[in-house]
Simulated assay, not measured.
Amino acid sequence: MLDQFDVTKRWPAKDPSVIQLYSLPTPNGVKVSAMLEETGLPYEAHLVSFATNDQFTPEFLSLNPNNKIPAIIDPDGPGGRPLPLWESGAILIYLAEKTGKFIPQDPTERAEVMQWLMWQMGGLGPMLGQFGFFYAFGGKEIEDPRPLQRYTNETKRLLSVLDQRLEGRSFVAGDAYSIADIAIWPWVRALFTGYKAADVLGLESYANVLRWHTGCADRPASQAAVDIPSQS
């Protein structure tokens, strides 16, 4: 069933009956790994290594022409047909609807979850990614201070938005853990881990964010997801 997808030539499926995940434990990758772990859906994880430019190979591009991780193939998609899917937010929504988990059925509550998911996809993720580039990676070599200052300020602003939202709340949208939380916490985690920017951003001042992040990151599914697919 999966042999119609060229990506399986480079990353063969051991069990073609389960979801195939093509990813790397970056913030966007961790989102989908965490969701799969949380839902209990059976899956196989395939490492798409940036070190060897796997994301630019013809096989991966046949699945995601945008050359980004993560991507999945669900052999048991709608109508029992295989479904290839990319973009982490779209995958979270699909898996939530497939399982009925981490997304409310009430239309108002559902809209609130989607609102914060879109906030992560359109704001928090891209802006924190730019901050990370200019603070921790290749952008450090740029002498002009304005790009780093711009994204530092925007990261702090977004953290303030999140901190205010979490005042008196356990979760970002409503009373239950949702795909909004799953989408957001890996990016907050990156500020500590990949970027090592806690001091420059003054993360200790965002008490609600820290409390919430600890609760999200300590979940068993989250702890597993940060090493899926394993790079060792």
Rank of each mutant, 00 (worst) to 15 (best):
2 L>T: 01
4 Q>I: 11
6 D>S: 14
6 D>C: 01
7 V>Q: 02
8 T>I: 07
9 K>T: 13
11 W>Q: 12
11 W>D: 09
14 K>V: 14
17 S>P: 08
19 I>R: 06
20 Q>V: 13
21 L>V: 14
22 Y>V: 10
23 S>Q: 05
23 S>V: 06
26 T>L: 08
26 T>C: 01
26 T>G: 05
28 N>R: 09
30 V>L: 02
31 K>A: 07
33 S>H: 08
36 L>S: 04
40 G>H: 07
45 A>G: 13
46 H>P: 11
47 L>F: 10
48 V>E: 01
48 V>P: 00
49 S>A: 13
56 F>E: 12
56 F>S: 10
59 E>Y: 04
60 F>V: 14
60 F>D: 07
71 A>F: 07
71 A>K: 12
72 I>M: 04
72 I>W: 01
76 D>Y: 00
76 D>C: 04
80 G>I: 10
81 R>D: 14
81 R>S: 14
85 L>K: 12
86 W>I: 08
87 E>L: 11
90 A>T: 15
90 A>I: 09
91 I>W: 04
91 I>C: 01
93 I>V: 15
95 L>Y: 02
96 A>S: 04
96 A>L: 00
101 K>W: 02
103 I>T: 11
103 I>W: 01
103 I>S: 09
104 P>E: 01
105 Q>K: 14
106 D>W: 07
115 Q>L: 04
115 Q>E: 09
117 L>A: 03
117 L>F: 02
118 M>S: 11
119 W>Y: 12
121 M>N: 14
122 G>Y: 03
122 G>H: 06
126 P>H: 08
127 M>Y: 10
127 M>H: 08
130 Q>W: 10
131 F>Q: 11
131 F>L: 07
133 F>T: 13
133 F>H: 15
134 F>D: 10
136 A>Q: 10
140 K>R: 15
142 I>P: 06
143 E>T: 15
145 P>F: 01
145 P>H: 03
146 R>C: 03
149 Q>K: 15
149 Q>S: 11
150 R>N: 06
151 Y>K: 13
152 T>K: 12
152 T>Y: 00
157 R>G: 13
157 R>I: 07
157 R>W: 08
158 L>A: 01
161 V>R: 00
161 V>E: 10
163 D>Y: 06
165 R>K: 05
169 R>Q: 15
175 D>Y: 00
175 D>M: 07
176 A>K: 15
177 Y>R: 03
179 I>V: 08
179 I>N: 05
179 I>R: 09
183 A>P: 11
185 W>L: 06
186 P>E: 00
187 W>A: 12
190 A>H: 10
190 A>P: 12
197 A>T: 10
200 V>T: 15
201 L>T: 10
202 G>I: 05
203 L>F: 02
204 E>T: 11
206 Y>T: 00
208 N>Y: 04
211 R>G: 09
212 W>Y: 02
213 H>Y: 15
218 D>A: 09
219 R>T: 07
224 A>F: 05
224 A>T: 15
225 A>M: 03
225 A>E: 07
229 P>C: 06
229 P>F: 01
230 S>G: 13
231 Q>S: 06
231 Q>N: 10
232 S>M: 04
